[in-house]
């Protein structure tokens, strides 16, 4: 049986099952709620992916050199370090972070009136890479030889935990989606059993006239699957409409929850997936239940 056949349906099978009533409403509402949650879970997963991606990109393309010497030596060390960096292949630019900018970076932790002059803060040189980046070990050795007060931080130690954190967050989101799919499966399986139980007489009559169990199951399965699809489509559209009201740009360093561009396409499979889950679980439940009937 093709998908087209399923959508077209058997007009006879469609007629023999009485109108769905409360069971159909349960399936529609249940799948709408699950699809609504699934759309938000997917939007959240997409946002986390973009966040992790931007973290990784930002950290991978930059490095920091700290000059820990003080007083006049610091200026000299800074100049020497800048010279070393300028002549290192793979480095696009290097600039000393001005005191005001450094103060802005520390402001969230120490407040506005931070007396930078009186604190033994290192001078920071921001390094931007190009091409495949630089050889961190070679640069580290060179700096150690020419500027002992300079320390290279290529951000490698930050990237690993961030990747782990992103992996965990993605795992949690996938688990949430799996939970939603399982709940959807349970709702549709229960609906199938309820529909079959409520229509015991219909099943007896159909068997009396020689209907095969697969045919009987198909009549119920198609109806429940279409209900699930329509419910999920409604839930997805509602969630998408709400997402569309969210700002397109992120705030506080976080990307926007609202999907952008092609990311909207990620939401299209939600009703189809809900219908597939409904079809599989309803069919299994219906056939199992019919098998259990004499």
């Amino acid at each position: 049986m093709t998908i087209l056949d399923f959508l077209r349906g058997d007009p006879g099978a469609g007629r023999v099952v009485p109108p769905a009533g409360s069971t159909g409403r349960l399936v529609g509402l249940g799948t709408a709620a699950m699809a609504f949650l699934a759309v938000f879970a997917i939007a959240l997963a997409a946002m986390l992916f973009r966040l992790g991606d931007s973290w990784r990109t930002d950290l991978a393309d930059t490095a920091t050199v700290r000059i820990t010497s003080l007083g006049e030596a610091r200026d000299a060390d800074t100049e020497t370090a800048l010279e070393v960096l300028r002549t290192t292949p793979g480095i696009a630019s290097a600039r000393v972070i001005p005191d005001l900018e450094q103060q802005a970076l520390l402001e969230p932790w120490f407040g506005k009136d931070l007396p930078l002059d009186s604190l033994p803060l290192p001078r920071l040189i921001e390094v931007a890479t190009e091409g495949g980046g630089f050889d961190a070990r070679a640069l580290d050795l060179r700096l150690a030889g020419e500027v002992p007060a300079a320390r290279l931080d290529d951000h490698d130690r930050w990237r690993a935990p961030l990747a782990r954190a992103q992996g965990r967050m993605t795992g949690v989101t996938l688990a949430a989606l799996a939970l939603i799919a399982a709940t959807l499966a349970a709702v549709t399986a229960l609906a199938a059993r309820a529909a079959l139980s409520a229509n015991a007489q219909v099943i007896d009559v159909l068997r009396l006239v020689g209907a095969r169990d697969t045919w009987i199951a198909r009549a119920f399965v198609r109806r429940i699957t279409l209900r699930a699809f329509l419910g999920a489509a409604g839930g997805s559209l509602l969630a998408a409409a709400i997402l569309a009201t969210f700002p397109a740009a992120g705030t506080a360093g976080l990307p926007a929850l609202r999907p952008g561009g092609l990311a909207w396409a990620l939401l299209v499979p939600v009703p189809l997936f809900a219908a597939l889950v409904a079809w599989i679980t309803t069919r299994r439940s219906a056939l199992r239940m019919l098998k259990g009937r004499p």
Binding site: R15, V16, P18, V205, V209
Partner: peptide, 17 residues
């Protein structure tokens, strides 16, 4: 019989299935 179907449809049920 299927109570929601007209009598003619009920009579034709063996062929519907």
């Amino acid at each position: 019989f299927l109570d929601h179907l007209p009598l003619e449809e009920n009579v034709l049920l063996p062929f519907t299935v």
